[in-house]
Simulated assay, not measured.
Amino acid sequence: MRAQSSWGFAAVVAGLVWSSAAMAQEALANPAFGPGEQSQYRIRYLGMTAGTAQVTVGAPMKQWGQDVWPIVAVARSDALIGVWPIKDKFVSYWQAPSQRVVGSDLHADENGKRRRQRIKVQPDGKSALVVKQKEGETPRESVTEITEGTLDVTGATFALRNRELVVGGEYAYPVFTGSKSFTMRAKVEAREVLETELGKKEVFRLRVQAEFGGNLTSKRDMVAYFTTDAQHVPVRIEAEFALGTVVAEITDYSPGRVEAVATAEKGG
């Protein structure tokens, strides 16, 4: 697996393993997740175990003066199969009442090369400050216009988990990666039973369209499996990228503290 692609997949796992302004107007009396939730995944690349990923919903905190839940994804490669050493951390700062994100932090350590990326959504919600820095170099800053309500992949996925999923349902969310903006689309194709390491699970099968670039360019739509219970836990993701076929399979899951969340006012 090429190192420069790994953090992108870690973000996909975090998000899939999506909300526009309209999402902020939906009732969230019983959200699907809460602080303390943790999911573990085995990552397979070209049929071999290539590494692991862990997705955790952290304790409430302040970020840029706003109340958020940090959603943290950590991806590590398996040194035994000869891929470049990878240890990446992606943090999405989730605002539960508004169903939005206020930004994200990426810390990438790939084949001994370190880099950081910070995205901070500006107060108007229509632009984002992006700061990129490679180890030993001066940070590069830019401001990019975004659609109001834009999310990262993680935020979009966790917003989807809070939706009432139904077979035939279609969902679309604007996403910004720091380099590219696109619309992520998901359609619930079927309800079925899937064998997992945690036992048989009734799941929704979703077909997901995304527009990642470079080695994360999809050859075909991704397929994600979410449990049909109230948690809508992603238990399996299948993706065929330009770099090869990648599958994420859940190996462990601990629910978090699910609590009622006040909904943001309309138009907010």
Rank of each mutant, 00 (worst) to 15 (best):
T245N: 12
F90N: 00
W18P: 15
P70N: 03
G15P: 11
E137A: 13
V188S: 00
T49P: 04
V91H: 05
S77I: 02
L198N: 08
V101L: 07
A75L: 15
N111C: 02
A224S: 07
E141V: 02
V12Q: 09
R163S: 13
L160N: 01
L206Y: 00
T150K: 04
E148I: 07
A230R: 14
A210P: 02
R115N: 10
G213S: 13
V188W: 04
V208L: 06
P255M: 05
L160E: 01
V101R: 01
E211R: 07
R44I: 07
K89A: 06
L46V: 15
S181E: 09
K219A: 08
L80Y: 06
R118H: 09
G8I: 13
A224T: 01
K201V: 06
A108H: 04
G199N: 06
L46S: 15
T228R: 02
A32R: 08
R114T: 14
Q63F: 14
V131D: 09
A75D: 03
L194G: 06
T228S: 13
Q54L: 11
P255I: 06
S142E: 15
A50Y: 06
V188L: 01
E189W: 02
R161Y: 07
T56K: 13
T138L: 07
F204V: 04
L129S: 14
Y171P: 08
T154C: 10
T144I: 13
R140W: 11
N215P: 00
L165S: 06
L80P: 00
A186H: 00
S98R: 14
S179F: 10
F176I: 03
K62N: 14
K89V: 13
R118P: 00
V12Y: 06
H232F: 02
M184E: 03
W84Y: 06
T52Q: 12
P174D: 12
L106V: 15
A264S: 12
S92V: 04
V175D: 01
Q25Y: 11
G155K: 02
Q117R: 14
A79F: 10
H107S: 14
L165W: 05
E259Q: 15
E26G: 07
T245H: 14
K113Q: 13
A128H: 05
F241E: 05
Q25F: 12
D109W: 03
A14R: 06
R116I: 00
E164R: 13
G256K: 03
A11E: 15
L28T: 13
K134V: 09
D105V: 07
P139T: 07
A24Q: 12
F182M: 03
G103Q: 04
R115M: 06
G65W: 09
S92Q: 03
T177F: 02
